[in-house]
Design a protein around this nucleic acid. Structure first.
Ligand code: SF4
Ligand code: SF4
Lengths: 140, 140
DNA sequence: TGTAATTCGGATAATTTTATCCGAATTACA
DNA sequence: TGTAATTCGGATAAAATTATCCGAATTACA
């Protein structure tokens, strides 16, 4: 469903969010916390930063944070890393179809797509943080 | 969502199904009909054959057919090419979660996954053939 | 029987995705 | 001021996916 890079991104964002608001999360903490290759994770964090989903501070004691007061949903993360493909594409990826001239599964499929979208829009990082903090679940 | 190979497989199966029952579909017809690279398509057709989703006849006037009297749904095709990943995996792909100790989005996500499964199980090749035959839609 | 059409499988190449390495710049703080 | 911790970006490598090429085997049919 999502690329590997994308699931790293999602997990990293959840982990960072579940740190204290003011605390910065270093690359190493993140990679360890989500069990990902750190250099690859670094690239992904840069992508997220460039899209405005993360802020970073350079130098010793530096690290990554969720931009303060920003609400972020799964969809934003997925789009930042995997692009609009998932949202725009279709089972068949046909070019010459439309809602006026749909293939037989169009309606069913659109329903599912809409629900996936809804799910991703409604799932905010906050939804995850509590259980992470309690260690009820881990991100590994 | 699906790999490129998988969407080629789906389209190829629909195309073959929409040929006459007794008519065989050659690789070239298929590749042309679904606008796919023929050598790559050949590999995919072999995979489908080995999984029992296609039968082939070798030699001149040979080609591919859907096994007679066999009902095939999308799920079977997807599993044959992309494996069980889509069905078994999850947004986060966590290892230590379960329905007893789920992450916060578990319920929502499982619902969507179940609907996707249902969709793929309920969508049979026959659903597509009529419109293909009428040329109301194409597979290109 | 000979030839063209075709599937089949192995080898290889191109592209994309995932991953590693390293040197430079920045900052905290001893 | 010096050093360790850190982000940042470029170069490269490894692995997976997608794609091409070719020769062998099989079959229809002229
Ligand atoms: S008609 Fe709808 S479901 Fe069918 S191929 Fe087009 S966009 Fe996809
Ligand atoms: S609890 Fe459910 S939704 Fe959450 S990561 Fe595990 S399987 Fe996925």
């Amino acid at each position: 469903m999502f690329s590997k890079a994308c699931t790293y991104a999602i997990k990293a964002m959840i982990l960072i969010k579940s740190c204290n608001e003011d605390k910065k999360c270093s690359l190493q903490e993140i990679a360890k916390g989500i069990n990902s290759p750190s250099a690859f994770t670094a690239k992904i964090l840069q992508q997220l930063r460039k899209k405005g989903l993360l802020v970073s501070t350079i130098g010793a004691k530096g690290g990554f944070q969720i931009p303060p007061k920003k609400q972020i949903c799964l969809l934003e993360i997925v789009e930042a890393i995997d692009g609009k493909g998932l949202i725009e594409s279709c089972v068949l990826g046909l070019k010459k179809c439309s809602s006026l001239n749909p293939c037989p599964v169009h309606e069913k499929y659109q329903n599912i797509k809409n629900e996936m979208l809804k799910f991703m829009m409604e799932s905010s990082l906050e939804d995850y943080t509590e259980k992470i903090k309690n260690r009820t679940i881990t991100l590994k």
